[in-house]
Design a protein around this nucleic acid. Structure first.
Length: 426
RNA sequence: GGAGUCGUCGCAUAGUUGGUCUAGUGCGCCACAUUGGAAAUGUGGUAUACCGGCAACGGUAUCAAGGGUUCGAAUCCCUUCGACUCCGCCA
């Protein structure tokens, strides 16, 4: 959600944002509705003030009857205008919820990911002196998963890790959580069951109608709850309706949760391997800060993820996502992609996003500024810490040996009982 | 799931026979006074949102949320949400 004053004063900037982000432009209708709402507020408030004045006079009046009569008349007049005001306010709210966040000037303009720009590349894809195996072959030969069996039991897009691979997933999670804790993040285990409103407050629905669920959300039949697609939405609401002291900022959270996505729009994609599932585990980085700190925090979050890529000894690159690719609520977005040898390409492992005050306006999360004592909305940012089991793919593919064993990155060895490699015939 | 108690201004509380409650008090916090400095004490202040206004300021709303009764609701009625206590069930 944007500031209504900003929309009034900068309609052209907002219209442009709708255009480059591919969302319908409702700005003109919104401004008309806003004007009517303000007009009706002025009228009803003036009348209510008069009614309140009369109500205060009644207890001590010698002749109450005429005052009561007049008060009743005013009430009737107010009721009419209030009815229209309520419907106009509903309409205004709905329109406000349809206005996308303004993208940053630095973001490439474009309709989709084809307009994304690679901004840096770190590490060099390894030259194998043997024919490297794809993830599924490594998983098969080491008995690290059971794809057919688990698909029969649980359905498609579920996974089940076995033995050393399961250990490795847990080790990576633990490593990332500990790393973020060491960098001042507070570790939070988040629920996955939540209310649709929470998802809406994170800006993950385009419109305001909660009945039109995003294709990616699982509703829980017979309840008013759904499954969260990411800990981000829980973390976002953690300080809803609070006024934080400026000294508390920035607040940094590392949230861990199972994540649930319907993947309705991805039919047929990534059906093999450990890339795309209805349920997966993710460590999410999340920051509340002052708006002027946002760019600095964005770099901090991005660096954390890049450092994690480096710790896992993976070649990776950083992408500047285009306006059409970044989504409804974002100011700017940088994907981090790791090298997948089996596909000879870089694939997304994480996504770093600046949201500005967009989410904070929906959750009403604010802070009191030192000196001026003014109450302002905080800015929020999020980035992946690590998403599993997807991150397992480049780890096992890049670090594989000719015998099918996999070298464990140094940073994980202490968490794997000191082993330096797993799998193969050892 | 069953039974009961309860949700008031940052915290703790008063207020529930509807009308000086534009919500009192204590703590906390801020300013000033007092002091060599501090403590203690005293005095004053202490919310958010929106509307109007250049501003000073004025107005409206908010006593969990929503709706209702009434000229008038923190106070009465209904619904929802949440908390606590017992019982049942369980990790």
């Amino acid at each position: 959600m944007l500031d209504i004053k900003f929309i009034r004063e900068n309609p052209d900037i907002v219209k442009n944002a709708c255009r480059v982000k591919n969302f319908p432009d409702v700005v003109d209708e919104l401004l008309l509705t806003d004007a009517r709402v303000r007009e009706l507020k002025t009228i009803t408030q003036t009348m209510t003030a008069e009614k309140n004045k009369i109500s205060r006079e009644i207890p001590t009046a010698s002749d109450k009857a005429p005052l009561i009569k007049r008060s009743k008349e005013i009430s009737d007049e107010i009721a009419n205008d209030m009815a229209e005001l309520a419907s106009q306010e509903d309409k205004l709210n709905d329109l406000m919820h349809r206005v996308p966040q303004i993208p940053d000037e630095s973001a490439p303009i474009g309709n989709d990911d084809s307009a994304n720009i690679e901004i840096r590349r770190v590490g060099t894809p390894r030259k194998f002196d043997f024919t490297p195996r794809a993830q599924w072959d490594l998983l098969d030969m080491n008995n690290w998963w059971m794809p057919e069996k688990i698909a029969n039991i649980c359905g498609t897009r579920t996974y089940c890790l076995v033995g050393e691979a399961a250990e490795l997933e847990l080790a990576i999670e633990t490593y990332v959580i500990q790393k973020l804790i060491s960098r001042g993040f507070t570790f939070i285990e988040c629920p996955s069951i939540t209310k649709p409103q929470t998802i809406f407050n994170a800006g993950h629905f385009m419109g305001s109608d909660l009945n039109i669920m995003n294709d990616d959300v699982f509703m829980l039949t017979g309840t008013d709850r759904c499954l969260a697609g990411t800990a981000e939405i829980i973390l976002n609401s953690l300080h809803a309706d609070e006024i934080l002291p400026e000294s508390a900022l920035p607040i940094k959270y590392a949230g861990f949760s199972p994540c649930f996505r319907r993947e309705a729009g991805a039919a047929g994609r990534d059906t093999r391997g450990l890339v795309r599932f209805h349920q997966f585990n993710k460590v999410e980085q999340y920051i509340f800060c002052k708006p002027e700190q946002s760019d600095e925090m964005h770099e901090l979050l991005l660096n954390n993820l890049c450092d994690i890529m480096a710790d896992l000894e993976l070649p990776y690159r950083v992408i500047a996502n285009s306006t059409g690719d970044m989504g409804f609520n974002k100011v700017k977005m940088n994907d981090v992609e790791a090298w997948f040898p089996s596909e000879s390409t870089y694939r997304e492992l994480g996504s770093c996003s600046s949201i500005g005050t967009f989410q904070a306006r929906r959750t009403n999360t604010r802070f009191r500024e030192n000196g001026t004592n003014e109450v302002k909305f905080v800015a929020t940012l999020n980035n992946t810490g690590i998403a599993l089991p997807r991150a397992l793919v480049p780890v096992i593919e890049n670090h594989q040996n000719a015998d099918g064993s996999v070298n464990i990155p140094k940073c994980l060895q202490p968490l794997m009982g000191g082993r330096t490699k797993i799998g193969g015939k050892h």
